[in-house]
Amino acid sequence: MTTDSGTPPTGPDASLALIDDILARPFPAGEESEDNGVRSSGPGHHLLILRAGKDFWDDRSTERVEESEEEIEAEFSAVATALTERWGEPETVDLWPYLAQEDVPVAEPLGQLSNLAGSMQVWRPPSGDPDGGKWLGLTVGQADPEFPIWLLAAVGEAAVLPG
């Protein structure tokens, strides 16, 4: 999906379309995993960069960082509002407990998310799955101070995030 100029569409509607796509997408089987730089998937999860701000390799000025934060936060707010209209109020999940637990395997996408953000908003879309289906997480994160600020969506199996 691209705009008339050949660039991918941006904005809340484009983010919601991407979310609908990953919710409908099956998880890879077995130990199979995929990563195309924007979406990573593995057994029981998908992680997607919905929107990336500017990187800060050449300019980490306060103005540039604040502008990027405001842009990503505005889209987060718009997408979160639309998801809340669909599925009700989200729960806030603290990601810090999942960060680098030694000798304890952390289920994905929680391991990846805990390295990028401190918390996420979680919705549990209705499904016909007797095991509870999937959860959808939305957060803002950053891999390192020079990297872009990202609006991230994650989908995981309900059993990974007891509710």
Rank of each mutant, 00 (worst) to 15 (best):
V93W: 04
A52E: 06
P109F: 03
T84N: 01
E146S: 07
T81A: 15
S15N: 04
T139Q: 05
E146T: 09
L113F: 07
E71C: 12
A143S: 06
A78P: 14
E34D: 12
P162K: 06
S68T: 02
G137V: 02
L136K: 00
K54E: 14
E32N: 10
E66D: 09
A52Q: 05
A82E: 15
P90D: 05
L83I: 04
V38T: 10
L152C: 08
G137Q: 00
A14E: 11
T7K: 12
G30V: 00
D131Q: 13
G118K: 01
G163C: 15
D94C: 04
A17Q: 09
S41H: 03
R64A: 04
D55Q: 07
G30C: 04
S119F: 07
W57C: 13
A74Q: 08
E66M: 11
E85A: 03
G163D: 13
E69N: 09
A52P: 14
V65E: 10
W150R: 12
D59R: 02
Q121C: 13
I72Q: 01
G163W: 12
E71Y: 06
A153M: 01
V140F: 10
I22S: 02
E146Q: 08
L47Y: 11
G128Y: 12
D55K: 03
V93M: 04
Q142G: 06
A80C: 02
N36P: 05
D129H: 00
A52V: 02
T10R: 13
V122S: 00
V122N: 03
G133H: 10
W135A: 08
S77T: 03
E89H: 07
D21T: 08
G6T: 08
A17L: 11
S33G: 14
N115Q: 13
T10C: 09
A80F: 09
E85L: 07
K54Q: 13
E32H: 12
A117E: 14
E71P: 14
D21E: 15
D103W: 11
L48H: 06
H45M: 12
V79P: 10
D4T: 09
P162E: 06
L16C: 08
P97A: 01
N115Y: 08
L50P: 10
I49V: 05
T3F: 02
L23I: 02
S33F: 06
A14Y: 02
E89F: 04
L161H: 01
P105Y: 06
D58K: 14
G11H: 02
A80S: 10
F76Y: 12
V140P: 14
